[in-house]
Design a binder for these strands. Structure first.
Ligand SMILES: [Mn+2]
Ligand SMILES: [Mn+2]
Ligand SMILES: [Zn+2]
Ligand SMILES: [Zn+2]
Lengths: 149, 149
DNA sequence: TTGTTATTGAGAATCAATTACAACAATAAT
DNA sequence: ATTATTGTTGTAATTGATTCTCAATAACAA
């Protein structure tokens, strides 16, 4: 719940202004650990009777990205999906190409790769994204039943 | 140059038709190892006086993806970027967030991660994508000069 | 050849994301 | 306090990528 405060600081540092709209959006972003897209975030706000324009949602997400508190997770169904990273351990994503389910996982090796490249003088690595694609257990089982049946 | 033939086979297998438009598009896709997006591919065709509609370019890329001969590499500037994979070794991508340059690299560890998950009975992993982000050497040097100057 | 059916190009439609702008609000300057 | 400056908002318009519609055409099998 402290990403909210960090975002306030970021806004101040940048000489921007803390507005009630930003406050509400950012609180909502940090209220869950789920992945989200602009539309679901916007609808969550509407359901709570917060009348904030979609433009402001876009603008605030853009700021959250710049602040480093939110990251783009993946692009699917024609639009971007996000998650907040403050207070969460780093992790990677497995995406089921059948049911679109997301499964998070952590592999130390990926950190090693990141470190190795960071130490080389060739690049300054600031981030990485590893996605695995395939079929989740549920969808595997469904397919096996299909073959059997 | 044989991805073209494999694509013909794929099209036949699926009961689809080999058309001159598809042939021209696919030849162009396999004519270089560069990353490409729909627009640059379309313009390359236009420059060669091939009058093929953009819709057909989209449709053929979609087939190429399904056939497994082409892969989505990354989403940037509001649209997808692709590369053909036939006849190429697997590799990952480093993307400079300053100049947008792409640098390809290969890490065995990533293959290990893929294998490890494939063997687990939890998921059936069919593919992966690893991207590193940061600053390339050129952009690092530019920034250092900025600080010094 | 002929019939069936996939494919094409052109343009319209869709949808995510950005932008222009006028009203408004917060801060700084006088 | 008053005024000027500048940031922010919502609305609506705009841009740009991608998909879709549909009538004309062409691939392929019989
Ligand atoms: Mn996640
Ligand atoms: Mn590549
Ligand atoms: Zn699944
Ligand atoms: Zn660079």
């Amino acid at each position: 719940m402290d990403g909210v405060r960090l975002f306030r600081d970021y806004v101040n540092e940048k000489g921007l202004r803390n507005t009630p709209e930003r406050e509400v959006i950012v609180r909502e972003v940090f209220s869950t650990h789920d992945h989200f897209d602009v539309d679901t975030l916007y609808l969550r706000l509407r359901n709570k009777k917060k009348n904030i324009s979609k433009a402001s949602v876009y603008r605030t997400i853009s700021l959250l990205i710049k602040s480093g508190l939110v990251k783009e997770v993946f692009f699917e169904d024609g639009h971007m999906h996000y998650e907040h990273v403050y207070g969460r351990d780093h992790h990677c994503h497995f995406r089921c190409i059948s049911c679109k389910k997301i499964i998070e996982f952590m592999e130390e090796e990926i950190i090693d790769i990141h470190r190795k490249f960071s130490k080389s003088s060739e690049f300054e690595v600031t981030g990485h994204r590893l996605e695995l694609f395939g079929y989740c257990r549920d969808c595997m089982e469904k397919e096996e039943k299909n073959k059997a049946g």
